[in-house]
Write a protein that binds this DNA or RNA. Structure first.
Lengths: 297, 297
DNA sequence: CATCTCGATAAGTGTGATTTATCAATAACC
DNA sequence: GGTTATTGATAAATCACACTTATCGAGATG
């Protein structure tokens, strides 16, 4: 019996649905079925009662869930403690954050530090132009990114922040005087092009290719970081959709933020590589996030 | 990080020697090296300090060993508890024992039962003629056997009993009057042939092919169980080496037991299949044995 | 009765756990 | 000091088994 099997069991005990469990763990439904069967064979007891319509835990299953989740936590904590004790470069959790996100998730980092004495978090600013690169190059252990993220090699963990959207416009422009804007009001003005290292869907979650009405949204010059975006906006070269929190950290005489209607609020999630060697710390950090932000994954 | 890796780490933390650890776990030394490296990479800390001559734990490694062994125990206990709760056929640990061994290891079984409430042990008498068969046919979960056992598909666990040897002879014979015997004193008398399902080395641990002096020890008629052996002895057809404990359980007017000099004492060990689905309970039982009998593996 | 959802199962596949073979470093021995 | 034995590390080869795809049958729903 391996830990991977236990994770499947615990997830199923939580979801009580084979299909959703499979989705959550990024495995096939068949696998979930197989693992449960294996566990039931190993324990010699039925752990779930299942009909084609319902799944629920047996008393033995419930007990096993409690026992195993406890053991699993201890297990992870042990690895994290070792990790936190590690001195030097290897010690800290390297967390990639875009722009000012590091400040926003401070409570989370504080909580992590207090739960795991000695646990350090090293913040590394990431570029909008290459959101997945640092993860894949193992330059960071985890990365805060807006959703959706659909990459086979990346694991999307808990949401750490949900917030509204704004449009950054030059203070002098007509739009700066509006109470709120819609995509259609861009009216041909270009938005900053955040580059192309990531697949298109990701950038389009920030600025769609077309307005809800179907009109094309023009791309302007490229910008790799928020600072570069802001420089372009201040210069009057582009307007740019940004996130609520940016208004709190980047105030600039030549830039005005106008709330963006229509745009759904953005979910920022913790993302890591499925092949990371540091999954111990990463998962511990994720666990803190889940509990702090609530199970709004 | 999987449990298999943790087992390797814990074994190495115990042995402090890569080669012996590999031997103990029946894996290659290379694998031990790789797993340790992986763990050190995952935790970001050195866990062992090693020169070509010595291996010892770092402070972080020591802490990790304590934490992990605790977590691992909880983990196994969780599985065992579930197993013990399982009703019916699937519940009990099926333990194969030769002849009267079941009585001898009673303290062990009692201790197991008291540690794992609900934990049942079902004793199944095994035949001398086919010591490994029940394990391989999954008719028992574990089997008590004398050493050596060298089968690639079987795992040799802790020793549960060490005892002296005797020779069962017909009460009427000359030998019955001796205080002790040596192999050479057999003087051509045949010993019972315990059959051939197991490789020769195993039967020869009971009765070697030749005396220390080099004389051939003759095989008589076959006997599959201790009862059959005793019947042959009582009949005067053969003499037969047996173990000390047999004298306590099988008294027969026509049989006399004479201590056997020269023969090294026999170690009885717990053995199980490496592919068993029930390794949870089996290992829990083994753990109890280790602690009760002492680390005399 | 047709359709849909769900979990179980059989068969095939790919990855990563594990082995074999070899190396470099050190201790031990003469 | 040279030689041998023992140790852990590493690269390359392999093989088992974790996992997938495809399909089924049971039951619910309309």
């Amino acid at each position: 019996m391996e830990l991977r099997d236990v994770e499947v069991f615990l997830a199923l005990a939580d979801e009580l649905h084979f299909g959703r469990t499979a989705e959550r763990l990024h495995i096939s439904q068949a696998r979930v079925s197989q693992v449960v069967k294996k566990l039931e064979r190993a324990t010699g007891a039925a752990l779930f009662e299942r009909t084609t319509r319902t799944v629920h835990l047996t008393p033995i299953g419930r007990r096993l869930r409690d026992d195993l989740s406890h053991a699993r936590d201890l297990f992870q904590d042990a690895l994290v403690r070792a990790n936190c004790s590690a001195q030097g470069v290897g010690g800290a959790l390297r967390l990639g954050v875009p722009g000012a996100m590091g400040h926003e998730i401070r409570p989370l980092i504080e909580e992590f530090r207090s739960r795991h004495p000695g646990g350090e978090v090293q913040l590394l600013e990431s570029r909008l132009s290459d959101p997945f690169g640092p993860l894949r190059a193992d330059q960071v252990d985890a990365q805060v990114l807006w959703l959706p993220v659909q990459e086979p090699d990346l694991i999307v963990g808990p949401v750490v922040l949900t917030e509204g959207r704004v449009l950054a416009v030059p203070t002098g422009s007509d739009m700066a005087r509006l109470d709120s804007v819609t995509w259609d009001q861009l009216d041909g003005r270009p938005v900053a092009d955040i580059g192309s290292m990531a697949p298109p869907y990701w950038g389009e979650a920030l600025a769609p290719r077309r307005t809800p009405g179907g009109r094309l949204i023009k791309r302007g010059p490229a910008a790799c970081t928020i600072q570069e975006v802001l420089a372009l906006v201040a210069d009057g070269k582009v307007v740019s959709p940004l996130h609520q929190h940016s208004t709190r950290y980047f105030s600039h005489p030549d830039i005005t933020y106008v709330p963006l209607r229509e745009a759904p609020s953005t979910q920022w999630a913790l993302v890591w590589s499925s092949t990371t060697y540091r999954s111990g710390v990463v998962r511990a950090f994720a666990r803190v996030a889940e509990e702090l932000v609530g199970p709004s994954a």
